[in-house]
Amino acid sequence: MNTSKQNSIAWDKKVEEGSRYTQSVSAEIINKSKAGDWEITVTTEKSVPRDWFPKNLKGVKILCLASGGGQQGPVLAAAGADVTVTDISKKQLEQDQMVAKRDGLNLKTMQGDMSDLSEFDDESYDIVVNPVSNLFVKDVRPVWNEVSRVLKNKGILICGFTNPLLWIFDDNQERKGILDVKNAIPSSTLDFLKKDELEDYIKTNQTIEYAHTLEDQIQGQIDAGFLISGFFEDDFGGKRILDNYIKTFIATRAIKLKVE
């Protein structure tokens, strides 16, 4: 099946349902960002440290990768960056377009798959911002390779991703407060469903998600030519039982370094 198409439709549905990750920032936040008081997230709760970015974003070319929803892109554009937002979901991108029109921002959008950035030239961006999203692609390593290609030498990748431990527990049981180890890593949503459940899952336009190993997440960046220069962990903000035991999200800052 075409998982990219499935996830595109699923995220369009999430916009219609008003999911947290589809809710655009307010005009007040944009005004503060224009005045230099800005912050973004690439995980769930914690803001990205400001020193992960250059002090002045004016004219800095930023690709917000799989980052639709009117959140990161508009804030960075308001702070002075030259921003392009790409996402698999047309409706997510419409959120960015809405904020840009509402608040007078210069911001470009392009629909596409994060694993294939062929529409973008080599070494054309200073920074790539990639919030938690690579769980929606089957193989994460092509994402790192494509990001490395479009970044300039010494360009910065700021990304969030899931700790694979999140996936080992039975999801239904965990939401009842029971930690029942059930699933292996790597794996996907589809691996956990019976045939009749799978058909219903697809028909109801649910996202297909993939649990990647930390080796693919971190060593994958290194193999693509990155040096990890920053790291933090995050959680659901106390909303799930796992927050009592471990942080289930990771953010890294990485620098592309050409080896001559």
Rank of each mutant, 00 (worst) to 15 (best):
residue 51 D to W: 05
residue 52 W to V: 04
residue 55 K to W: 02
residue 56 N to Y: 07
residue 57 L to W: 02
residue 58 K to C: 02
residue 58 K to I: 03
residue 59 G to N: 03
residue 60 V to R: 00
residue 60 V to Y: 01
residue 63 L to T: 03
residue 64 C to V: 04
residue 64 C to W: 05
residue 64 C to K: 01
residue 65 L to G: 02
residue 69 G to W: 01
residue 69 G to H: 02
residue 71 Q to G: 10
residue 72 Q to L: 02
residue 73 G to R: 02
residue 74 P to T: 02
residue 76 L to F: 03
residue 77 A to M: 02
residue 77 A to I: 00
residue 79 A to W: 06
residue 81 A to P: 04
residue 81 A to M: 03
residue 82 D to F: 00
residue 82 D to C: 00
residue 82 D to Q: 00
residue 84 T to H: 01
residue 85 V to M: 03
residue 85 V to P: 09
residue 86 T to F: 00
residue 86 T to W: 00
residue 88 I to E: 06
residue 88 I to T: 11
residue 89 S to V: 14
residue 89 S to A: 13
residue 90 K to N: 08
residue 90 K to V: 12
residue 93 L to N: 07
residue 93 L to M: 11
residue 94 E to A: 14
residue 96 D to T: 04
residue 98 M to Y: 13
residue 98 M to W: 12
residue 99 V to K: 05
residue 99 V to N: 04
residue 101 K to P: 01
residue 101 K to C: 03
residue 101 K to S: 05
residue 102 R to H: 07
residue 102 R to D: 03
residue 103 D to N: 11
residue 103 D to C: 11
residue 105 L to G: 00
residue 108 K to R: 10
residue 109 T to C: 06
residue 111 Q to D: 04
residue 114 M to E: 07
residue 114 M to P: 00
residue 115 S to Y: 05
residue 115 S to T: 10
residue 117 L to V: 06
residue 117 L to R: 09
residue 117 L to H: 03
residue 118 S to K: 13
residue 118 S to A: 15
residue 119 E to A: 14
residue 119 E to H: 06
residue 121 D to N: 13
residue 123 E to H: 05
residue 124 S to H: 05
residue 124 S to E: 08
residue 125 Y to F: 13
residue 130 N to Y: 08
residue 131 P to K: 04
residue 134 N to I: 09
residue 135 L to G: 13
residue 138 K to P: 04
residue 138 K to Q: 08
residue 140 V to M: 11
residue 140 V to H: 06
residue 141 R to G: 12
residue 144 W to F: 07
residue 145 N to Y: 06
residue 148 S to V: 07
residue 149 R to D: 12
residue 149 R to C: 07
residue 150 V to R: 02
residue 150 V to W: 02
residue 150 V to Y: 03
residue 150 V to F: 05
residue 150 V to T: 04
residue 151 L to S: 04
residue 151 L to E: 08
residue 152 K to A: 13
residue 154 K to M: 13
residue 154 K to W: 10
residue 155 G to E: 06
residue 156 I to W: 00
residue 156 I to R: 00
residue 157 L to N: 09
residue 157 L to Q: 10
residue 158 I to Y: 01
residue 159 C to V: 11
residue 161 F to C: 14
residue 162 T to W: 08
residue 163 N to L: 14
residue 165 L to G: 09
residue 165 L to I: 13
residue 168 I to V: 14
residue 168 I to D: 08
residue 171 D to I: 11
residue 176 K to Q: 14
residue 176 K to W: 10
residue 177 G to W: 10
residue 177 G to V: 08
residue 177 G to R: 15
residue 178 I to G: 09
residue 178 I to P: 12
residue 179 L to E: 08
residue 179 L to M: 13
residue 181 V to I: 15
residue 183 N to E: 04
residue 184 A to M: 11
residue 184 A to E: 12
residue 186 P to E: 12
residue 187 S to Q: 11
residue 188 S to G: 10
residue 189 T to I: 08
residue 191 D to F: 12
residue 193 L to F: 03
residue 194 K to L: 13
residue 194 K to Q: 14
residue 196 D to F: 05
residue 196 D to A: 10
residue 197 E to N: 09
